[in-house]
């Protein structure tokens, strides 16, 4: 309940003050789009060192979303490096609930994400990447659930970046395992009639790129949609200026908030498991 109060509070204090002037679209855009940070220490760094575009296209100024990603990454480091030490120290399993909680999640990644999609002796090699992607996405997702924070994964550039790494993984692993040419030749399934190959090859190439594209859109849309619904529920209070609507919409947004907590886990899992599936299947020709 305290979280909910904070949550409502943060939305009302940041967007509700000028509710009469701001349209719903503005509020949604304010909460769900990126802003370059122009104040404080980071603002100064942005102005002094990062104001010119890298290679003319990459605007490297630190934005709110970049900051959120860094916080998520930092949380990962803060959580997992001590966990690693404790796990290593406790040969028969730690008694600590905190350690066991993360162990369960790591085992979950191992059993549900990596193991079904990789050959036995590659599981250990694949674990670091998929653990990283699962927990990074999970932390980004959950960070957005904290009032005052934002969901970095609710942005196409972020999810696109992660999906691009999956694509690079697919192509890279495929080319290493099947040979640079074998991989591209293996895209077309064996046993298709020769005259279909010119047709199949472009389709498979498109399919190759559609996979990470779908990853991008799925994570982005899932993380954005819930926030939009929560904001709209809360905006109803400002629209109708009535206590009864307030009770209903706060309850509604609480429900969506809980659903979002679930979605945060599910989407992190889906992103990791689909990445594993794509990369794992690129190890062998179809």
């Amino acid at each position: 309940m305290i979280h909910l109060l904070h949550y409502v509070n943060s939305y009302i204090s940041s967007g509700g003050g000028e509710a009469e002037k701001e349209s719903m679209y503005d509020i949604v855009m304010h909460h769900l789009t990126d802003h370059v940070i122009s104040t404080g220490f980071i603002g100064k760094i942005n102005e002094q060192y990062l104001s010119t575009k890298l290679f003319g296209i990459f605007d490297m100024r630190i934005t709110r979303w970049v900051l959120m990603m860094w916080i998520a990454a930092l949380l990962c480091l803060i959580v997992f490096i001590p966990i690693a030490r404790k796990v290593k120290k406790a040969k028969n399993g730690s008694r600590s609930k905190w350690v066991n909680l993360w162990e369960v999640l790591i085992s979950f990644v191992h059993d549900e994400v990596v193991e079904p999609n990789f050959d036995h002796h590659y599981v250990k090699k694949a674990m670091p990447y998929f653990c990283s992607i699962f927990f990074f996405v999970l932390f980004c997702n959950l960070l957005g659930m904290i009032p005052g924070m934002s969901t970095a994964t609710g942005n196409l550039a972020v999810t696109g970046g992660l999906a691009m790494l999956t694509l690079a993984g697919m192509i890279g692993v495929g080319m290493i395992k099947q040979g640079p040419f074998g991989y591209w030749a293996g895209l077309v399934p064996h046993g298709v009639p020769a005259f279909v190959i010119p047709l199949m090859f472009p389709i498979e190439i498109i399919g190759l790129f559609i996979k990470p594209f779908a990853l991008t859109i799925r994570l982005f849309a899932n993380m954005t949609a819930g926030h939009v619904v929560i904001i709209i529920f809360l905006y109803l209070v400002m629209m109708f200026q009535s206590y009864w609507v307030g009770i209903g919409s706060v309850t509604g947004s609480l429900m969506i908030y809980l659903l979002e907590l679930l979605v945060a886990f599910i989407q992190a899992y889906i992103f990791a498991v689909l990445s594993a599936m794509f990369i794992g299947s690129s190890m062998h020709a179809h």
Partner: peptide
């Protein structure tokens, strides 16, 4: 909006994180 800068930051952040955690 797909911001190329944010895209690059994502890749960099994730790769660094993955490397350290690895």
């Amino acid at each position: 909006k797909v911001d190329p800068g944010l895209f690059l930051w994502t890749v960099i952040t994730f790769l660094v994180l993955a490397l350290i955690l690895w």
